[in-house]
């Protein structure tokens, strides 16, 4: 196990290195740059400004120079760079944004568990009955309906029907209730797909366990069904939780881009949307590398947790 962890840890910087190259090349391959965005107006284009911004961004240097300078700053000084668009250092921006995205992410994981486990468990216990079909229908629905579409409906319809907004303007924890209201809706929407997936996994895991010999034995001993399920069926089925939590972290990263722009949450997603529109290469590169690092660490943790909770799993 120790060897496995060390091997995985060693792979992280190599993977990240490859990602930095890919991100860097792809960003340069798309047409347009921050100079064009910043120096183009409704019908004019200022070439002096364009050259100035390109110089400020280092875009006037060769691609190799740009890459090595950027990577060198990250590796040697932990400096993700300076955005000439927002005029902020990436490092100082990243903390509060990770926190905002993280809050939504953690809440969405909580919602995922709250949705997925009960639905999956009830569905398994009542397998083949109408309630099972109804719950499975909703699980499939949760998987198929895009969350951005639901988000738009959730925003528009309450306003049209009742004149209320489901998510107010962004406020921090200084106003806890509005803050929770703001993060709860996108977190709930982000959790739907994960919750649906989890419910289906929990259902199939529980069904498998329910058909095991030791469960039959438990019933034969005369244990009550609630005891059989809660003590002997539920526990071994919970390994699936770790898979889903790991997956949910990646879903949160991807989903945050859309959800944060819809609900106006100043997190990583909203940041990267603005950066893409403004061709703010420094921010995009920094955020993508950060996302990648986050994902690599989470998947490592999930894999380690697997082996820890299930002695049958060996690496």
């Amino acid at each position: 196990m120790g060897t496995y962890i060390v091997r995985r840890l060693l792979l992280i910087p190599i993977t990240l290195f490859v990602i930095t190259i890919v991100v860097f090349i792809f960003m340069r391959a798309i047409p347009g740059d921050a100079g064009q965005v910043k120096c183009g107006a409704a019908g004019s284009f200022d070439e002096v400004c364009f050259e100035q911004v390109r110089k400020e961004l280092g875009l006037d240097k060769s691609l190799f120079q740009q890459y090595t300078l950027w990577l060198g700053d990250i590796v040697l000084r932990g400096d993700f760079g300076f955005s000439p668009i927002s005029r902020e250092h990436i490092n100082s921006e990243i903390g509060p944004r990770v926190w905002n995205t993280g809050q939504v992410g953690l809440l969405s994981i909580a919602f995922t568990l709250l949705i997925g486990i009960p639905v999956g468990a009830i569905s398994a216990i009542r397998a083949g009955r109408p309630s099972d079909y109804v719950l499975r229908f909703f699980a499939v629905l949760g998987l198929s309906v895009p969350n951005f579409w639901l988000a738009t409906l959730l925003i528009i319809f309450p306003a049209v029907w009742w004149g209320v907004r489901i998510a107010p303007d962004w406020v921090g924890w200084e106003d806890p209730l509005p803050h929770l209201q703001i993060i709860a809706v996108p977190a709930f929407l982000l959790s739907l797909a994960g919750g649906a997936t989890l419910s289906r996994i929990v259902r199939s895991s529980m069904l498998e366990v329910l058909r095991s010999d030791f469960v039959r034995t438990s019933r034969a001993k005369g244990l009550r069904e609630t005891v059989v399920v809660s003590r002997h069926v539920f526990r071994p089925s919970m390994i699936a939780l770790f898979t889903i939590i790991g997956l949910q972290f990646s879903l949160v990263l991807g989903g945050s881009v859309i959800m944060e722009s819809i609900f106006n949450i100043p997190g990583m997603g909203l940041w990267v949307i603005g950066a893409v529109a403004g061709r703010d290469f420094i921010v995009i590169q920094g955020v993508v590398v950060f996302f990648a690092a986050w994902f690599l660490v989470i998947t490592l943790l999930v894999d380690v947790m697997y082996a820890w909770v299930d002695p049958r799993i060996r690496y």
Binding site: A159, V164, I166, A167, P168, I262, F263, N264
Partner: peptide, 14 residues
């Protein structure tokens, strides 16, 4: 940022 969010904000009187 989002157009539908702006519309909802306006319709809701905010």
């Amino acid at each position: 940022v989002d157009a539908s969010a702006r519309e909802a904000r306006f319709i809701a009187g905010d």
